[in-house]
């Protein structure tokens, strides 16, 4: 069926193939995926932007600055620099300070931490808490304590 061609290498297809591969791999594919993602999964495809009181206030996946003593604080080191999560132990260790600042009982804060833990499925992963999610949880549950945030 096929015969080995002993002639010199045919250079003609190189340029065409380079351009065709550019169009398929560099444009067609990322644009198709963008289209599907934007139609079917717009929340994830746009960066899991959290809406609060009708305004975008951050992304679930990117840490934001929390310095006030009434909030849980993210880590200030990590490989990416924007680690949105803290370990359970870290969250527990912050409870007394938050309790002091807000008057919310330690037991209630502990149960909020426990309710917010994620990241374990079957045998995989160790539990952690997303800082933005738990702080929004606090604002929603204790609207009087966090009145300056819940009224827009």
């Amino acid at each position: 069926m096929t015969t080995e061609n002993k002639e010199k290498y045919n250079f003609k297809p190189i340029l065409g193939l380079a351009i065709v591969s550019l169009l398929i791999c560099g444009l067609f594919f990322p644009l198709i995926v963008t289209g599907i993602a934007q139609v079917f999964f717009p929340y994830q495809a746009n960066g899991e932007i959290v809406q609060f009181n009708g305004k975008p206030i951050g992304s679930n996946l990117i840490a934001q600055t929390f310095t006030m003593p009434i909030f849980f604080h993210p880590r200030n080191d990590s490989a990416s620099g924007v680690d949105p999560d803290i370990t359970l132990q870290d969250a527990y260790s912050q409870i007394p300070a938050i309790s002091n600042a807000t008057g919310i009982p330690v037991d209630s804060l502990t149960s909020i931490v426990n309710q917010n833990q994620e990241g374990t499925w079957w045998i995989f992963g160790s539990p952690y808490v997303n800082v933005l999610k738990i702080n929004i949880g606090l604002i929603k549950q204790y609207s009087t304590v966090y009145s300056e945030f819940s009224i827009s």
């Binding site: 934007q38 994830q44 746009n46």
Partner: peptide, 24 residues
């Protein structure tokens, strides 16, 4: 990956005001 939370958009950035009022 998209379902797991990886973005796929032609927009390079979103600027917003965080809970504590800083720009991110």
């Amino acid at each position: 990956f998209v379902v797991m939370g990886v973005p796929q958009t032609l927009s390079a950035s979103t600027t917003l005001t965080t809970l504590q009022g800083t720009t991110q």
